[in-house]
Design a binder for these strands. Structure first.
Lengths: 142, 142
DNA sequence: CTTAGTGCCGTAGTCAAGTACAGGGTCAAG
DNA sequence: CTTGACCCTGTACTTGACTACGGCACTAAG
């Protein structure tokens, strides 16, 4: 079978990846995606590799990496960057665990607040806001 | 005892709250903080209430509320907004729970990645990046 | 009384992550 | 050969949350 089927223009690449065309170009400008050298005419062709890379960027973003970090990660792929990549991932893991803990405290606080609110509905000043205003330090400050 | 001790200028308020002066002014412009009417001269004085409010804003931000949502919450405080406030808080609670679930999936993914990385350290191409490149859908797509 | 240090006000700049658009070029169909 | 759908480059705009700055007023210390 011919494997030309994966050849795409920027438009179909973007569509396939579920992002805006301009986002693809933006990533190229940021050096996250390479611009395939354009043949005679001037219309670039992209393949499955580019699509994966785009998918990687989006996955990594959902993992909480900034584009700068994603760029770093991708640079580490060209060669022996595994050590560093693991270090970065470990840092991110710690980070994520901290954020989960925060979120859980937030959850508890919100839950408490909602229930308090339900309990004394007739109140004039909202107990939720009151409790927040009364300087409860729920989440670690920054 | 005199309770004039809580009177502050914008500068000390900002310092006490651990934010930039300009941030305070910004919140005032956004209507999150009131500008105390300035006496004769023209230098406003802030009190513990303002400090709490500032603390509330920061807490709420850490709770994942945007400034717009915080403004909403604060507006509900002037009167009988308790019902609405609870509704907002409930929505946020659902939201936060979803985000916690996401983060936990992220955590698992990162953890897995880190361990894979540790396992086959000698590899040329980093397994972490490889796994991300191979289109693993870890987190719900947006 | 003078002057350093703040405060006030208004406008403008920054940063991340896009998104939009103008003014061209190219390509495939009819 | 024309038309419409895309593509290319480059520049500019957007949003959220600040942060900075210029020019003037005021207040506190010496």
């Amino acid at each position: 079978m011919t494997r030309q089927a994966t050849q795409m223009t920027i438009g179909s690449l973007a569509k396939a990846a579920g992002v805006n065309i301009e986002t693809v170009r933006y990533y190229q400008r940021r050096g996250l995606l390479s611009e395939p050298d354009k043949p005679l005419g001037g219309i670039r062709r992209y393949d499955r590799g580019d699509l994966s890379r785009l998918g990687f960027i989006k996955s990594a973003q959902r993992l909480g990496f900034s584009l700068e970090e994603v760029a770093l990660l991708l640079k580490l792929d060209d060669g022996t960057g595994c050590e560093e990549a693991r270090t970065i991932a470990e840092k991110k893991l710690t980070d994520v665990r901290g954020r989960i803990a925060d979120m859980q405290r937030i959850e508890a606080a919100l839950d408490h607040i909602v229930h308090t609110c339900q309990a004394r509905q007739g109140n004039v000043s909202c107990p939720m806001i009151a409790s927040l205003l009364m300087g409860e330090r729920i989440v670690r400050p920054a």
